[in-house]
Design a protein around this nucleic acid. Sequence first.
DNA 1: TTTAGCATGCGAGAT
DNA 2: GCATGCTAAA
Length: 818
Amino acid sequence: MSSFDDSDAFEAASSQSLSARAMAARPMPHLDGLNPAQRAAVEALEGPVLMLAGAGTGKTRALTARIAHLLQTGTARPNEILAVTFTNKAAREMKLRVAALMRQPVEGMPWLGTFHAICVKLLRRHAELAGLKSNFTILDTDDQVRLMKQLILAEEIDEKRWPARQLAGIIDGWKNRALTPDKVPAADAGAFNRRGIDLYAQYQQRLRELNAVDFGDLLLHMIAIFQAHTDLLQQYQRWFRYILVDEYQDTNVAQYLWLRLLAAGHSNICVVGDDDQSIYGWRGAEVGNILRFEKDFPGAQVLRLEQNYRSTGHILAAASGVIAGNKGRLGKTLWTEGEDGKKVHLIGHWDGEEEARWIGEEIEAMTRGTRGMDPISPDGMAILVRASHQMRAFEDRFLTIGLPYRVIGGPRFYERMEIRDAMAYFRVVVSPDDDLAFERIVNTPKRGLGDKAQATMQKLARSNGVSLLEGARLAAETGAIGGKGGKELKALLDGLARWRDLMLGGLRPVTPGAADDDLLVEEDRPAAERLSHIELAERILDESGYTAMWQADKTPEAPGRLENLKELVKALESFENLQGFLEHVSLIMDNEQEDGEPKVTLMTLHAAKGLEFPAVFLPGWEDGLFPSQRAMDEEGMKGLEEERRLAYVGITRAERVCTISFAGNRRVYGQWQSQMPSRFIDELPEDHVEVLTPPGLYGHGGGMGASASPVADLMRGSDLHAAAARADVYNSPGWKRLQANQARPGLRQPAEARHMTVDAEAVSAFALDDRVFHQKFGYGTVVSVEGDKLGVDFDKAGAKHVLGRFLVAAGAAGDVPF
DNA sequence: TTTAGCATGCGAGAT
DNA sequence: GCATGCTAAA
């Protein structure tokens, strides 16, 4: 608590408060142009407020205006507002937009940030109350797993049965639900039984010994501190007079508890979110938090933002139609004053490659202007996929046709191996007792220090109660590690000591095992006498042999890695020292740089939340892929509803044109599979959908489309996707005749029932022992007939289940052009 | 200690 | 199909 005295944050801007008179005279530009609902949300400052903001309804605008309003009216000072976001990007953007609204830089706002950044700040102040030193390190997922692996190994548990990564994930889940080891229900340990809980407890113990926390701990420690020290909690309740939370539907239990503690005094808590866009259940988000808000905070005002400024009428209607299939939502009706625009486009393809080819062509056409629309720049187009491996087909295709694209959410800069290695070097220099970092670099590059040598270091460190680095020093000095490895180890240790010495300015001799606290007095030394941290970083990478390691590497990715290292050094420029940089990196992960060329964006549906594009492509709408089979298997109805919200998020990203597509065949893990159109396609309201027929596909592959597919589709009675499939390649005279002979069932069936109600007639074209041909699998013999699903023993590809629609009778003259 | 070769398993990914 | 991570052999 003593740390309050030297607090920057609470001092800032606390000198004068704005008088009511000043406020009356002040213009309120931040209110300009708000619609009535937004304005109500901005002006309802007191008490709990739930701002239910549908997609594209100007949520961020209202939220920032609300902050501006709090400030402009003098209701709160910048340091009295606690504004929480999930991502650093969102926090940054909010700061910028508030500043723009205020027409002046917003100094202060020290408490606008992510849950984690704010908790780091708080926890550094009160670390001792959690049994930590204020310079604790923050472990990322990789460190966590490595630590867990050590524990599992020490326990002599079969690592195969209980992989460290999986256990780390389970512990993460517990932390998301605010469950400390003593609170985990025994039944919850799952396959790990009590053992998992024991390991969790041990893991926490190790973290304490390492003076480290993981992301989940940041919240949990603060909750524990607040619960144990009510006086402290009350101070913060008084300080944070107004609380704002963005994306409330994404909060987990721990975040919810933390907020509830802080808001308990005044209840001036305004949460903003959209239950229909809750898509992060798998990482602990609880839709329940937003659904329950009115109960949690009695007297809450619920304000709905429903006027959409992004999408056309047809797109909104299609999205609404899909999301209406969900139960347990608060309910909103999006509307627009804009025009209906284009109907949502729907198209079926033969396989994934063809889907990619068609979308590539469609993008080129749209760039020029097509389907009666003005040209759209590739910058305004996005392809949103369910799973990142779907991106490959598009990347391949776009590379061949030379269509520029960018991928969002690939492996992140700071997650790449070389960057993590380099940063581990920095970490050891900054904190010599960062065992995990030392472990990472001790044999990178190879120094002849394998498992055996490292075990020796570990043992010495343990038995002497010192850091791993000290253990290594002991091992080297006592000759416990000798030979080539010992020599190399000495060189590394000398290097580390030298670099640390350089960092500290070389004024003070570095005693072995010097505490990190040295850093706290760094300011005492004249800057001129210190080597710049950038030069230092370069020297570390050179002298350690790390750069040389990649220069010697002949694999194709080596040059890229060296390039990345250069970028890393460049990134150091905006920081004062290595420690500041490491701090930043542990919390922030993003790196996007752009040249000016217009590019199509390729990303996952998850990554697209909050973004908008004039033209959006939604490929891969096939049951099992989207909705994901795994989501449905593991979470049942709950999982399906989250997938449906994902569909809703996808459609509502589109401003002017939204194109949904599916493929009949797809290679999944190297195996060809026939795919069923997504049940979400059946849920699209037909009046707002236009089924496209791709030109230029006729004659493609000759008879490959000559399957019974239209028949099967029609018999299944699914209107839209049948039409889409029919409009595709299946256009031979043969099946037009078949279509004409088939009566269409009038009623659409519920999606769930669809798979059950297969009409045997539809596939009567094939019988047991028939010889058939399949585009991908080749020739085979029918071994089973189950509705429209056939078991076929292919001559080359083996036994498979395929839909009759993708088979041709072999031997029928003219049917088999291959 | 390093490496080649085989088994395994696979969804979204902020902090 | 591919990346990861282990075992066996050099």
